[in-house]
Design a protein around this nucleic acid. Structure first.
Lengths: 205, 205
DNA sequence: GGAATAGTGTCTGTGAGACACTATTAG
DNA sequence: CTAATAGTGTCTCACAGACACTATTCC
């Protein structure tokens, strides 16, 4: 830590910003795409924390979410650094925005708000939600449930419902089926205990 | 700066990482996609600097490039934060990677190296170049010269050559023309002083 | 059989890609 | 005229999207 630069100073002799992580935790509940919000100082915001020394950004994201919900191995995706000088009046704070997608069953003790109603958040968190939704839709447009919200096995109806909740412009079932089949392995097992013809189970390829 | 948190401490009482910006400056020279590199301590790396207080990331990028080349209004695009704990042995340094694309005529006093030969760079700069090239190709796939490398007016041959240098899988001239025309305004002026039929000039829509 | 859902045959339109032709200029 | 490059008519192929039909299960 005491390595000096060309001016005879260590890195820690220069002013440094604080670095935070803020995470848009997205999920689907009741057929609606929702984001997890926390209440703080009378406002609503995304869960976040400050980056610790010797900690990766992904670890800080995991730490910030571990308390609020029994979150297992989360795999945050980095979205963007928000760097407006006045975005936090406690000082210069950069926020590295992240995205996580999870089944709603994995979340506890958080407010789930449909993204269409999640406006007026603190800081620049509206913009983070917007980026997160765009990124999620893009990733779901090409591949079946890339975040693994459904677990390892699912029917095409379940998959179609999930994709339609995430993006209402998702194609209807027959087109959707043909687009997704190349990325799926069909199992030789069927759904059980349902009305109508039982559907085949699939795994992601 | 003296606002206290729930533990009675100000933000500056917590350890903070240093934040750097590193920029992949991409250009096309001699029909080849090139990246600008600087020599330092016997290694090659991307131009970069540390973020100053009260400075935006884009401003730090502009500052780091202003010295090395008479760079006008650059519009850096943010790519990714590299956060490995040991990526810089002077201490904990986050690097926010950026991309800029410019005409090679705007660059002076830098080494231009074809991206296919730009390996073995310092830190994690190989990965930054890879991300930058991917991002540039993606942006050029849909729109004509979105970075404005060619200036305001150009022929379709010039545009095609540029796109082909950036991405060798670019379609051939007729398909390329039809794909790009919806995003172009044809002028009523023609190229002058050339062999063969003079080409029409276009502007980005 | 009837209800319910799974899965598919097939038609249409669109558009990428390639080939080869025509058009326009200089000399 | 020839050389050289610009620009386009047109064919093929693939595929998204939609409709409607068939298939399979439980009751």
């Amino acid at each position: 830590m005491s390595i000096l630069d060309a001016h005879g100073k260590a890195l820690t002799d220069y002013p440094r910003p604080s670095v935070a992580v803020d995470t848009a935790v997205l999920t689907v509940a009741d057929e609606a795409l929702c984001v997890a919000l926390v209440e703080r100082d009378g406002g609503r915001r995304l869960p976040g924390t400050f980056l610790h020394e010797e900690e990766l950004l992904a670890e800080a994201v995991a730490r910030s979410l571990r308390d609020r919900a029994g979150l297992r191995g989360v795999v945050p995706r980095q979205l963007h650094v928000f760097d407006a000088v006045d975005r936090d009046d406690r000082g210069r704070v950069l926020s590295v925005a992240h995205l996580i997608a999870l089944p709603s069953s994995a979340l506890h003790d958080v407010d789930l708000v449909p993204v269409v109603e999640a406006h007026g958040l603190d800081f620049d968190h509206d913009a983070i939600v917007e980026r997160a939704v765009d990124a999620l839709r893009e990733s779901y447009a090409e591949r079946p449930d890339p975040a693994g919200i459904l677990g390892p096995e699912f029917t095409l109806l379940e998959l179609h419902r999930l994709h339609s909740a995430i993006d209402p412009t998702t194609a209807q079932k027959d087109t959707f089926r043909r687009a997704m089949l190349p990325h799926l392995d069909g199992l030789d097992r069927l759904q059980e205990g349902v009305i109508g013809k039982p559907a085949r189970l699939f795994r992601r390829r």
